[in-house]
Design a protein around this nucleic acid. Structure first.
Lengths: 229, 229
DNA sequence: AAATAAATTAACCAAATGGTACAAAAATGC
DNA sequence: GCATTTTTGTACCATTTGGTTAATTTATTT
């Protein structure tokens, strides 16, 4: 018993190649590490250890730490924008569509804290790594286009106020939904946890919706659109 | 010419003590470094080099890097809250006072990007270092108190809608003003610089004011209060 | 099947980093 | 004026870190 023959010849030293899977494994691990610790805080050794492969592979595929970070960023933006594109707002009346968009954004940011953290981290670095990629504008264009279409429908139907720029509208929605996650911890410490309990969050979500709608709707439509739901 | 005598005996090896000045010098330099590079990104050597004193002093006064970071945070919060307390809103009618508060917050955050960055960084660290200090709630209480007084005045005068919590109101104002600075760079890259030119910023400020007022005011007062200015 | 290219491993390295040991100069107490 | 305590400067160190060298294994081409 226990003689060491070629009983299991498979697990001795043998591996299949699967570059793409290895790449994605590294990116996934690195995403968590960078989101948790920032660019300078993350440790390549730590990332490598949590990977199915070795540190050498990281440098083989990504060149250096910053190259890896940049790919993590790109991948994060891509996957988030992909998620957003599932929304279809065209068949809803404009106020309802806007409400749905805000609610979706609010929930979406809550479900993707790692993405929020990566964006925070990238801002700390003055967006230097996003600037290098340069395809950012293309990637983000659809967001604005959808919102523009929605806003113009609302204008034509006479329910939205004029002279709001879609980019500004997007900025407002982003600000409220982003801050909710990004500053959760310091706000907690400073002002208590009321807003961040489960009940607090669903109340807050409705208030954010309300804020955006009260800003966008013509006054005469406010009461109807807010009670509606 | 050039003989080395005791010509200047004063600058050889002599110094006056001034602990508090040294401490503040370190904190000031460290604030910039931490704001620029984060906790893990900042280098103690670099901080020391930019100081009038030596690395040894940093460890003497602050124990370790994290201790220094923590003091930097505390000092930053204190000085910012101090600045805010200069506002006196009591003698203005509630809508005007609220407008002034929002405008002030917007400008204030713009003038203190280092503070914004420190808060971002602290959030990346899950507010662990603020949690340790525990006097945060005391420090931030006045902000809520002032806002509560203002809101209740507005209620009594019949110009504000009911059932808005002051903490929530503060959250909304903070979110919009904070995001403006914190996410400036990534927003720039993603959606263009329109909102962050000089003209763009003053327009945005008015829109933020408008958003808060439309949310807070009773509908019948909106037109009057927004045109007023 | 031989030669070439791509993918992977393990051991190693120089530089940078947070932190300290030691000693000397000022201030303070007696 | 002397002893003790506080404050400061210099030189140094152990560890960690990002990154590499060189060799081995699998896949692909001819």
């Amino acid at each position: 018993m226990g003689d060491l023959k070629d009983d299991k010849q498979e697990d001795v030293k043998s591996w299949k190649q699967n570059p793409e899977a290895v790449r994605m494994d590294i990116i996934k691990v690195a995403t968590e590490e960078f989101a948790a610790n920032g660019l300078s805080g993350a440790r390549v050794n730590e990332i490598a250890a949590k990977t199915k492969t070795s540190k050498r592979m990281i440098y083989y595929y990504f060149g250096d730490k910053e190259g890896l970070y940049q790919q993590v960023l790109i991948e994060a933006y891509r996957s988030v924008r992909e998620g957003e594109s599932e929304l279809d707002l065209e068949h809803l009346d404009p106020p309802t569509a806007l409400r749905k968009l805000v609610e979706f954004t609010f929930d979406h940011h809550r479900r993707n804290p790692d993405f929020i953290r990566l964006v925070m981290i990238e801002n700390i670095h003055n967006a230097d790594y996003l600037k290098q990629t340069a395809f950012m504008k293309t990637l983000n264009q659809p967001v604005i286009e959808r919102l523009t279409a929605l806003y113009e429908r609302g204008l034509n139907e006479g329910v939205f106020r004029a002279a709001i720029s879609p980019v500004t509208l997007h900025w407002h929605i982003s600000a409220l939904c982003f801050f909710n996650i990004s500053n959760l911890e310091t706000f907690n410490v400073s002002f208590g946890k009321q807003l961040f309990t489960k009940a607090g969050q669903s109340r807050l979500k409705q208030q954010v919706v309300e804020m955006v709608l009260r800003y966008t709707l013509k006054p005469e439509w406010i009461d109807q659109c807010l009670s509606e739901r």
